[in-house]
Nucleic acid binder design. Structure first.
Length: 200
DNA sequence: TCACTGATCGTCT
DNA sequence: GACGATCAGTGAG
């Protein structure tokens, strides 16, 4: 696995959201290593009413204002964590939500963390599931994902596959904007068949 | 496969 | 005091 360098990352949210598809997210913990291949992302832009950074910097969202390539981990619905990659220059609040991945390494450990997931395709299918499977929590908030550590990004190895787009999932503000990106026909992407444009 | 619901708590109004 | 970038379980088609 070859670590992504910061200077390889596009410093613009929609470009980064597409760039990250096909790259790898590596989690190192005392229990072992888990790795997934990112297949679905969403961009949350500067000035975007759906973005956690919209109302300015707070203790909770400060990681969104770090330079591109840092982790923003937040707690939602009283039970789940979700992971973003900060996506603009330092001082600008924006991020790319990692929504789903194809589990590649450490499937046994992922199953221990997600005992209710019956099928491998459901281990990292959804932002809360992805974070749980990789053991991601508040201790990962603010980490530099281009530096050695407990959580980092590795460069894509396989040739790019077709990327489809759709509105973002689960939001009420700016709900019509096309800022979700996913690998077309990937069984590991979240969303319903209809949301993934596969109806008919 | 879709639609709906309850669980659960940090954050900001 | 309300709500949220979610998920698992249930029941119907």
């Amino acid at each position: 696995m070859r670590r992504l360098r910061r200077d390889a990352l596009p410093v613009e949210s929609t470009a980064l959201a597409q760039f990250l598809i096909g790259t790898y997210l590596v989690s190192e913990s005392p229990a072992g290593r888990t790795v997934l291949r990112i297949v679905e992302t969403e961009a949350y832009l500067p000035g975007d009413a759906a973005a956690h950074s919209y109302r300015g910097e707070t203790p909770r969202n400060r990681s969104l204002f770090l330079s591109a390539g840092h982790a923003y981990v937040y707690f939602i619905y009283g039970m789940y964590y979700c992971v973003n990659v900060s996506s603009e220059a330092a001082g600008v609040g924006a991020g790319v939500l990692l929504r789903a991945g194809e589990p590649l390494v450490g499937l046994g450990l992922m199953r221990e963390r997600r005992p209710r997931a019956a099928r491998a395709r459901d281990l990292c299918r959804g932002p809360g599931r992805l974070a749980t499977a990789l053991g991601i929590g508040p201790e990962h908030d603010g980490l530099d994902l281009t530096a050695p550590g407990a959580l980092w990004l590795a460069a894509a190895v396989e040739s790019p596959r077709p990327i489809a787009t759709s509105p973002r999932i689960g939001i009420t503000q700016e709900a019509d904007r096309i800022l979700r990106y996913y690998e077309r026909r990937s069984p590991f992407a979240s969303g319903s068949r209809r949301q993934n444009g596969e109806s008919r």
